[in-house]
């Protein structure tokens, strides 16, 4: 019989990890603070006790080393899940990610497979300063050779985790700290919690989800900004503006067709993203629509992103630069008033 419960994103992702580890002896987890601490963001909570120190492997603070190590283990037939607490830390191991894990399959012409999952905690909005608050997904999605997942709710978190672990490719799995539901981030955003079947299920990479249907404008948003966009949509509805919200869910592959289809219906495009604005996700979405069919655009697209500044600590300044519901609402009104 099918049973289900309401879970946070962290619990949902962890459930998938647990199930896969029980089924498949090749799956193991390594990273900082996973064995006893359960992962800084709860991704491995309780797994250490369940599977032991050999399969929930604590590492030294050596990101280049342990991502390289996981890559080798994956090549040699294991299925490692690497926990790298903050996405900001890709700065100390970028080579291991982009020159090593992401390139072996292509450079070997498919001889070498790297079935590895790299879990990253992304995002700010909780005053943690400029090196622990970034949303650096474009730095990863820009580089070929890795699939990049950024779920926005618990149902997707579980389905994509199963898919990521079972994939024979290198998958980067980006969880948003503020969406995780981990205790020290306060009360979870209700929209992140989902009814989760106890059974395992997978979700396909590269299929966007229409999270709210509408006819007046399209907001494309990812991860935390999905919830800002949904909040904006609700507020705008009171003004008689009916927006559609699209969550691509995976940055690589990107479901360009679904985005185009929505813009063809609404004629207006707003892209919300917590990452830096220039050369990022917002640019990619807008360029894709413009390339595929510029005639669908009845107005110039608008981006709501980090305005290319380092993330400041102080609350009013940080809130000012985040792509909040308020900024998204203003963007929609601006587009539609023209």
């Amino acid at each position: 019989m099918t049973s289900s419960r309401t879970l946070t994103m962290a619990r949902a992702g962890r459930e998938a990890v647990m199930w896969e580890m029980e089924q498949d002896p090749r799956v193991f987890m390594l990273g900082e603070d996973v064995y006893k601490f359960g992962g800084v963001f709860g991704t491995a909570d309780g797994l250490g006790e369940m599977f032991g120190a050999d399969r929930i492997l604590d590492t030294p603070i050596s990101e280049t080393g342990f991502i390289g190590l996981a890559t080798g283990a994956a090549i040699a037939g294991m299925r490692p899940i690497v926990e790298l607490a903050f996405i900001d830390f890709i700065g100390v191991c970028y080579n291991a990610i982009v020159n090593l894990a992401a390139k072996h399959h292509y450079l070997s012409n498919g001889q070498v497979k790297v079935p590895m999952v790299l879990m990253l905690g992304s995002g700010g909005g909780y005053n943690n300063g400029g090196q622990h608050s970034q949303a650096l997904h474009a730095c990863l999605a820009h580089m070929p050779g890795m699939k990049v997942v950024a779920p926005s709710n618990a149902y997707d978190a579980k389905g994509f985790m199963h898919a990521a672990i079972r994939s024979d490719d290198f998958v980067v799995y980006i969880g948003h700290k503020k969406l995780s539901g981990v205790g020290f981030f306060g009360k979870p955003i209700p929209g992140t919690m989902s009814e989760i079947p106890s059974e395992p299920y997978t979700l396909p990479f590269g299929e966007a989800k229409v999270v709210r249907e509408g006819i007046d404008a399209t907001i494309v948003a990812i991860s935390w900004t999905v919830h800002q966009a949904l909040d904006a949509a609700e507020k705008l509805a009171h003004e008689g503006i009916d927006v559609e919200v699209i969550d691509p869910r995976t940055l690589v592959p990107l479901d360009r067709e679904s985005i185009l289809k929505s813009v063809a219906k609404t004629g207006h495009l707003i892209v919300a993203d917590e990452d830096y604005q220039s050369y990022g996700f917002t640019a990619e979405v807008i360029a894709s629509v413009a390339e595929l069919d510029p005639t669908v655009l009845k107005s110039a697209p608008v981006r709501v992103a980090n305005p290319d500044v380092t993330i400041p600590y102080s609350r009013p300044m940080e809130q000012h630069i985040l792509p909040t519901s308020q900024r998204i609402q203003e963007a929609v009104r601006r587009v539609l008033s023209k």
Partner: peptide, 13 residues
């Protein structure tokens, strides 16, 4: 760059 992978292969073995 081969350091991590070779050690990971050792771990896998």
């Amino acid at each position: 760059e081969g350091m991590g992978p070779a050690a990971g292969m050792a771990l896998a073995c």
